[in-house]
Amino acid sequence: MAKNYIGLEIGNGITTMYQGGKKGKILVSRLPENLVDDGEIVSPELLSQFLKKMKKEGKFSGRACALILPEFSAYFRSLEMPAISEKQLRLNLPYEFRDFVGNESINYNYDYAVEDYVTDEDGKVTAIRLLAASASKETIKEYENLLNRAGFKLKVALPREMALLNLVRKAIERGAPSDRTFVIIDVGFTNTRVYIFQGEDLKATKTIEMGCRDVDSVIADYYNIDVYLAASYRETDHEGILESDECRAVYNRISLEVMKAINFYKYENRQSEFEDCFICGDCSDTEALVNNMLAYVRLKRESLDVILPEESRGLSDAPRALMSIGVTL
């Protein structure tokens, strides 16, 4: 994929833009209120204006962009299919998503990435392991129109898992062990997600319906302010609020669920050994939460430079913009 694509993720709390090239650049901007609610766009026209302003502020060049699809708009599956041609694979993908899309398969787009090939004793390919996704054509069209008004041209749209697979694959191409376990913890605004790759094989995912919005809620209650203002208090650690018992109680609940997910994977995959993890996401800069989580899971925080392309290493906002980086690769 062209290096000059602008990677874009429109989250619930923040929006991130990334562009590679000789030296990568990232812009992270907090979303104004009432533009996006739980991933769904509330005001397309105002959001277009916001993105147009971001593009100008960050001095991003060109129109071509690659978008991270919001979770509600895309379905994602790990599949193992017979060793058939690409044409046959694409013909069969709608059938594999029938439980999600029902009789509406004609109204969805489908795509896939090959994870691995299964071979017999003679080395003959007998099956293909895939990461596959489907997205509503209507949703894609809505984003195309929104982004066009903002000065972009949508070229690629991927779910988060495929963006992470791009990063893992590139890391292995650069020399990371092909059997390494990549544990990626995405500390988001509304959700915290755990992704575990064994090499290029996505082995496990877990979504925990808690994130920094829950921290903002207890801060709002503590100061008797609205939640949007409370997010500013969190970002600046107003009066050391992030070390309060109220906030720590939220950290503990999130960290406990992350620990359960990782421990379950270890129990089910006892041959898999790992001592570190990668931290990313909207709230990966909330150190009090991240440190609490690392203590629970008993893993070291590995540098994202291991999976980042060279042009984005050293950029302070790379952890928050990881998906926007991965979607451009």
Rank of each mutant, 00 (worst) to 15 (best):
Leu130Lys: 08
Tyr112Thr: 01
Val101Trp: 03
Asn145Asp: 07
Asn145Glu: 13
Arg149Glu: 15
Leu130Tyr: 02
Asp111Ser: 14
Val118Gln: 11
Asp120Lys: 07
Tyr112His: 09
Glu142Cys: 05
Asp116Phe: 06
Gly102Asp: 06
Ser136Pro: 04
Arg129Val: 06
Asp120Asn: 15
Asn107Asp: 15
Lys155Asp: 13
Lys137Ala: 08
Leu147Trp: 00
Asp116Cys: 12
Asp122His: 07
Lys141Thr: 12
Thr139Asn: 03
Glu138Ser: 10
Asp122Ile: 04
Asp122Ser: 11
Ser136Lys: 12
Val156His: 08
Asn109Pro: 03
Asn103Cys: 01
Lys155Gln: 12
Ser134Ala: 15
Ile106Cys: 06
Asp120Phe: 10
Tyr143Gly: 00
Lys141Phe: 09
Asn103Glu: 14
Ala127Val: 11
Lys141Tyr: 10
Lys137His: 04
Gly102Gln: 09
Val156Glu: 11
Arg129Ala: 05
Phe100Pro: 00
Glu142Ile: 05
Phe100Ser: 06
Asp111Met: 11
Tyr112Cys: 04
Glu121His: 10
Lys153Ser: 15
Ser105Arg: 05
Lys155Phe: 09
Gly123Ala: 11
Tyr108His: 10
Ala133Leu: 05
Ser136Thr: 12
Gly102Met: 11
Phe152Asp: 04
Ile140His: 00
Ile140Asn: 01
Gly102Leu: 12
Phe100Met: 09
Glu115Arg: 05
Val101Tyr: 07
Leu146Val: 02
Asp120Leu: 14
Leu131Pro: 03
Phe100Val: 05
Ser105Leu: 07
Tyr117Ala: 03
Glu142Thr: 04
Ala150Met: 14
Asp120Ala: 03
Ile140Tyr: 00
Val156Arg: 07
Lys141Pro: 01
Glu115Asp: 04
Tyr108Leu: 11
Glu115Leu: 15
Ser134Glu: 03
Arg129Cys: 07
Glu104Pro: 03
Ile128Val: 15
Ile106Ser: 13
Lys124Arg: 10
Tyr108Ser: 10
Val118Leu: 13
Leu146Ala: 08
Ala113Tyr: 02
Arg129Ile: 09
Glu142Lys: 11
Ile106Glu: 15
Ala132Glu: 00
Ala150Tyr: 02
Glu104Tyr: 08
Lys137Leu: 07
Thr126Val: 14
Ala113Cys: 02
Ala150Val: 12
Asp116Gly: 01
Gly102Thr: 00
Lys141Leu: 15
Asn148His: 15
Asp116Ala: 05
Leu154Pro: 00
Ile106Gly: 08
Ile128Glu: 05
Ala133Phe: 01
Gly151Met: 12
Thr126Phe: 06
Ser105Ile: 10
Asn109Glu: 14
Lys153Ile: 03
Glu115Met: 15
Asn145His: 07
Phe100Lys: 08
Asn103Lys: 14
Lys141Ser: 12
Ile106His: 12
Asp122Lys: 14
Asp111Asn: 12
Lys141Ile: 06
Ile140Ser: 02
Val114Arg: 03
Tyr143Asp: 02
Phe152His: 01
Ile140Gln: 00
Thr139Cys: 04
Lys141His: 11
Arg149Trp: 08
Val118Asp: 09
Asn107Thr: 08
Ala127Leu: 13
Leu131Glu: 06
Asn103Asp: 14
Val101Cys: 12
Lys141Gly: 01
Val118Thr: 05
Val118Arg: 00
Lys153Gln: 13
Tyr112Leu: 12
Lys124Thr: 11
Gly102Ile: 03
Glu115Ile: 13
Val114Asn: 06
Lys137Thr: 03
Tyr110Thr: 04
Ala135Thr: 03
Val118Phe: 03
Asp116Val: 03
Asp111Glu: 14
